[in-house]
């Protein structure tokens, strides 16, 4: 199982309330808020922690967590280059990278090889963006399994969990897709 999340920084920083006490209190634990206020670039840490929580949440939902909007219940602790994330009995380790344009977080349960890619989107229309990310994922699956990309379908199962199938049979992979602002990403791992 796999979860990922991308945050386009120029889009995210348009948030009206970012960094305000009320904003921080709604999303972050006290420990996370300390990380944020002690940082030289608080907004960057805000979105890193956000992406880390969001990617872990996607994984936890696949593990059976019932969807709800409770970012503060997802607790992040920095552990060397990773984040250790927990929510109730669920736990995972999340990797997070950042540059000046976007933040990307990813977490995987399996030990097998992961293919993931972050890229700039051609369109600013939501539907086209989803299509571009979905097609990029399908092309990779097509290369990997040596199957016709046109016969690969992406569907959302229960709780919005994405599934790839070929000729109406699920492919033995777990996938996660994300896009925000000008950037998109997918990640795929053998199940």
């Amino acid at each position: 199982m796999i979860g990922n999340d991308i945050v386009c920084l120029s889009t995210a920083n348009r948030s009206k309330h970012i960094g305000s006490k009320r904003f921080l209190d709604k999303i972050f634990t006290v420990e996370e808020q300390v990380m944020i206020v002690n940082s030289e670039d608080p907004n960057l840490i805000i979105w890193k922690l956000w992406a880390v929580k969001e990617s872990a949440y996607k994984l936890f939902v696949q593990q059976g967590f019932q969807p709800e909007f409770a970012p503060k219940k997802i607790i992040c602790k920095k552990a060397n280059e990773h984040f250790q994330v927990s929510m109730d009995n669920f736990k995972t380790s999340v990797d997070c990278i950042a540059n000046t344009k976007f933040v990307y977080a990813q977490t995987i349960l399996e030990k097998s090889k992961v293919i993931s890619s972050c890229f700039e989107l051609d369109s600013n229309i939501y539907y086209n963006q989803s299509q571009q990310v979905s097609l990029a994922l399908k092309k990779n699956a097509s290369l990997f399994f040596q199957i016709d990309v046109r016969l690969i379908q992406l569907n959302k199962a229960k709780n919005n969990i994405p599934k790839l199938s070929y000729k109406n049979t699920f492919l033995p992979v777990n996938v996660s897709l994300t896009h925000h602002g000008s950037f998109g990403a997918f990640a795929v791992v053998l199940a």
Partner: peptide, 26 residues
Amino acid sequence: NSANLVDIILDIEDAFDIRLENEDME
């Protein structure tokens, strides 16, 4: 985008002059 949900929650608090707890937000 879920990142904007918190902005919406805070805008709702301001517009209706109420305070929403995390349980409400969920």
